[in-house]
Design a protein around this nucleic acid. Sequence first.
DNA 1: TTGAAAGCGCTAACAG
DNA 2: CTGTTAGCGCTTTCAA
Lengths: 355, 355
Amino acid sequence: MAVTLADVARAADVSTSTVSRAMTQPERVDEQTRTRILAEVRRLGYRPNRAARSLITGRTGYLGVIVPDLTNPFFPELVAGIQGRAHERSLTTLLADTRDDPDAERDLLTTLAPQVDGLVLCGSRLPDADLVAAADPVPAADLVPAADLVPAADLVPAPDLGAVAAGRVPLVVVNRTVPGVPSVAVDNAGGAARAIEHLRSLGHTRIAYVGPAEGYSHRQRLTGAQEAAVTLGVQLIEVEGASSTFDGGQRAADGVLFGGVSAVLAYNDAMAIGLMHRLHGYGVRIPEDLSIVGFDDIAIAQMAYPPLTTVRFPRQEAGQQAVDQLLRNAEGATLGTELVVRRSTALYRPEEGSR
Amino acid sequence: MAVTLADVARAADVSTSTVSRAMTQPERVDEQTRTRILAEVRRLGYRPNRAARSLITGRTGYLGVIVPDLTNPFFPELVAGIQGRAHERSLTTLLADTRDDPDAERDLLTTLAPQVDGLVLCGSRLPDADLVAAADPVPAADLVPAADLVPAADLVPAPDLGAVAAGRVPLVVVNRTVPGVPSVAVDNAGGAARAIEHLRSLGHTRIAYVGPAEGYSHRQRLTGAQEAAVTLGVQLIEVEGASSTFDGGQRAADGVLFGGVSAVLAYNDAMAIGLMHRLHGYGVRIPEDLSIVGFDDIAIAQMAYPPLTTVRFPRQEAGQQAVDQLLRNAEGATLGTELVVRRSTALYRPEEGSR
DNA sequence: TTGAAAGCGCTAACAG
DNA sequence: CTGTTAGCGCTTTCAA
């Protein structure tokens, strides 16, 4: 069997309570005693039993993360940000994938909630009401300071993410706003606006926005693009591509050509690349004949041919923010986006107007 | 507080043991009693407390998964396979990312081991000895049958993955062979051989293999390519690209051109695409001037321009196999690979020999 | 500053 | 088939 508190207590010739205190509240134990205990802990290779600890503290040390589809390259980087920060805070991440199924998401939400101290929801497909119902409305509590005295992460108790009402859990949603639920917001509208401005600067005055039929960030990006278009005197043509994927982008190609535009802003990089792909097949040269801008800056963007100009979505930072918010370490500021110019947009062409 | 076993027992007017049995060993409870109990379970929304259950059974219901880098598109699909199967088996997956750091991997191995019932190691960077030391050498136990009687996954206890000696855990490694440790093998050599055969069929007789400096599957793929080359009378030129990434592939471009070959087999798709990218820049036309074959068939392969011919690595299946093996549901067969022909290889050209 | 005792929620003998 | 009893390993009063 594994080494238990009792084993350490026996070896250090103290009671189990003292060992327990030495681990979790070092300042409440005489320094000499503590040193002796920690020496034994190390010698015996003692690791606290999480289950036993949870049973009594009510905390698990786990942070749940729910994503719609891990194979969508947008999410792994977000997860990396979450995982990194969680690890720093002695939390172990529990990752679940809903396969884009809202029912599965609802299921996971209720399954995971009791097993974790906090939950990060990425790209949730659930209606606001479900999220509000799941979120703990009474978050509180301080962050437990990183205990430098004890080496292994597991020896440190997990930070207190707040009291949890039955079936509810501290929750944070990423890239979405739900009244009453903490969230990490990202400036989608601003990013889209900057993309339109960029295209306008290059001389484009008739631009297509290729997006999916619906979706939270789609609406934000579209709105941002529309407002910029109005301000700059650009004609914005909406083209719908069914799904926000490579495939969806491919299917939008005909609509784009029909629209008679000289440039395109796509809802995301996947659509942009699908579009480029199909247009290649049509003999359209990019960026000579048509400029394309994507959104997100997933890894593929720079590997595309030609490399894709895009708006960087700060995924890693968003993940970190999410954890910080759960730990009440950060206010819910809006993260900025940034235009990354690559070769999929043409050089400056003086007012040629629409074609 | 949450609903406990005692609450259900009180409501159904039975003892807690009976409720416990109704959940975990339905056949040992009178059908009427059981029905009544399950009705109360549902009515009250009872969910077993995992920590309490773990404490006594010694099982956690968690399956650990360790990957080197989740942002590498190779892994998410593998994880999806694992997660899917694990979920079917009432196991919750605990995913950890080592960031390609062997020390972090060793750390995670020891941190995770006591919290999980089994561990899947993907693309491990650790020496055999570490893996053997961590693996439980005395695996056993039957699979708990999927209990159809109880709806929610969490109500079913996790399957027994075998007795665990101190600090050891049932372990399976994916795409690697370690003596004494269960593993999921994939036919890397065969895939590489088939790629060479394909290129030979198209008329290529001088072919480059572009790989990283080292690595388990690299060696297997290289060996497979070499053997096929000898058999078919093909000259195989090895070109080293430093790392097995897009970048590594780019850096190998000069070497490939210098080698005077008419075709290339890359260690993986990322390198293949990096190589294509750089060659595009050099004005080399693909596949007219040079045919390229990748390996793995990550999603980007078909989005590349031109779409990349590649060898499909059955990631999803490998993930499922891994879980099946942990559950002693499957023998360690070798999974096959498969050539996927796309436009990055040229049409048949009669023996033009090397250039 | 330390120890004794209680108990978190559950399962597993063991009787009945 | 069901209830009683004990205790998993830990933290936390409460006293000393």
